[in-house]
Structures are given as structure tokens and as C-alpha cells.
């Protein structure tokens, strides 16, 4: 145990659902090191699967996918609306979301009645509710505050993109040729 640096704070964060990315030093460096396997082996008997995402961030696998706290559907709807907005702007989605800073007051979530109606379904009614979602995203390690009103999304937001890709293949049932993971 003594050979694994920062194991206790790393465990505390990961077990709360936090994702560790380059903004979470020194824990990120510890996990990125050659000892990643040791950390994974250490946590495995405790029932936690340490995942190293291909975009280089770390998190514990969800323990029970069927038990969904109220906050997670809110986060999902918030994220999907942001992606939908980026797509309508004609921007590359990942560049749009991960490549710029955002202001709460300039978020597109109440710019369309359709978006507002979708948010109402998950009990999000105003900018204050949006801020609660953003605070939760910060706890997950998906965003970083840069000021009172300004923030940027962090690398672990790729988990949303991954889910979108899964949904587009599973729910739309496209042909293999159209699948995003098929070779070109």
C-alpha cells in the first residue's frame, strides 16, 4: 500500500464518481504512471474497476447501472442539448465543447422552447438549476470553473460523446457501413 502514492485521496475521489484528468494533479500523474496496473489491482478486490479511458483520464466503473440518481438524467439532458446546439452551429462537436470557455449566461439551454421543455422534464427550470448541474459536473471532474460565471469542460466529457456514439449505433440501427467505428 505504501508503494502506491496518494492512494487514499485517489480512492476517495474516484469512489465519489470523480473522474481524474490532467487538471487533477498529482493524482493524475500517479495513475498515468507505470503503476496504473497496481492501482487497478489494489482497488479490484474492494469491488471497484479502475478504468483508463482512451482519451487519458481515469474513473471507477459505475457500480449499479440500474440505480440512477436524479442528477444523472439532468446531466445527460444538459449535455445532449449542448451537443445539439453545437451541431446546429455546424461546428465540430468536440472542438466546440472542449475547445472554448463558456459563460452560464450564454448557454443555449433556454434559447429554444424545445430545450426548455426537455429540461422541465428533469426539473430544471432556470439558470439557478443549470448552475446546480454545472456544480455537479465539477464534482464529477467534467468541468472547471474559471470565474463566477465562466467555465470550461474537461476531458472526461468524452464519456458523453461515447454514449452518443453508442446511441447513434444502437438506437438508430444503421448499416455497418455507416457505423462510426467502421473503417473508411
Amino acid at each position: 500500500m505504501s508503494a502506491l502514492p496518494h492512494v487514499r485521496p485517489i480512492f476517495e475521489r474516484l469512489s465519489r464518481g470523480t473522474h481524474l484528468s490532467p487538471d487533477d494533479e498529482p493524482f493524475f500523474s500517479a495513475l498515468s504512471s507505470a503503476k496504473f496496473g497496481d492501482y487497478a489491482d489494489y482497488f479490484a478486490p474492494l469491488g471497484f474497476e479502475l478504468i483508463r479511458h482512451e482519451r487519458e483520464f481515469f474513473y471507477f466503473a459505475p457500480n449499479d447501472p440500474d440505480k440512477v440518481p436524479d442528477t444523472l438524467p439532468r446531466i445527460a439532458v444538459f449535455s445532449y442539448i449542448l451537443i445539439d446546439h453545437a451541431a446546429n452551429q455546424g461546428e465540430l462537436i468536440e472542438d466546440f465543447i472542449l475547445g472554448r470557455n463558456f459563460l452560464i449566461s450564454a448557454l443555449p439551454h433556454f434559447s429554444l422552447d424545445r430545450y426548455a421543455a426537455l429540461l422541465r422534464q428533469v426539473e430544471v427550470h432556470d439558470a439557478a438549476d443549470l448552475k446546480l448541474i454545472l456544480q455537479h459536473l465539477e464534482r464529477l471532474g467534467w468541468l472547471k470553473w474559471l470565474g463566477i460565471d465562466e467555465f470550461r469542460f474537461l476531458r472526461p466529457f468524452h464519456r458523453v460523446f461515447d454514449r452518443c456514439l453508442e446511441l447513434s449505433t444502437q438506437l438508430a440501427s444503421p448499416t455497418d457501413a455507416e457505423r462510426p467505428d467502421s473503417t473508411v
Binding site: 445527460a76 439532458v77 449535455s79 445532449y80 442539448i81 451537443i83 445539439d84 453545437a86 451541431a87 461546428e91 465540430l92 462537436i93 468536440e94 424545445r114 421543455a117 426537455l118 422534464q121 460523446f161 454514449r163 452518443c164 456514439l165 453508442e166 446511441l167 447513434s168 449505433t169 438506437l171 438508430a172 462510426p180
Partner: peptide
């Protein structure tokens, strides 16, 4: 890739709606 991401988000929102 962006197109598929956008499609996935749109499918999720459409289902919710």
C-alpha cells in the same frame, strides 16, 4: 464522428420528448 455524436444526442432528446 461529429455527425454520429450529434445523431446520438438527437436520438436521446427525441426519445425524451
Amino acid at each position: 464522428r461529429s455527425s454520429f455524436i450529434a445523431t446520438g444526442a438527437a436520438i436521446a432528446l427525441e426519445r425524451l420528448q
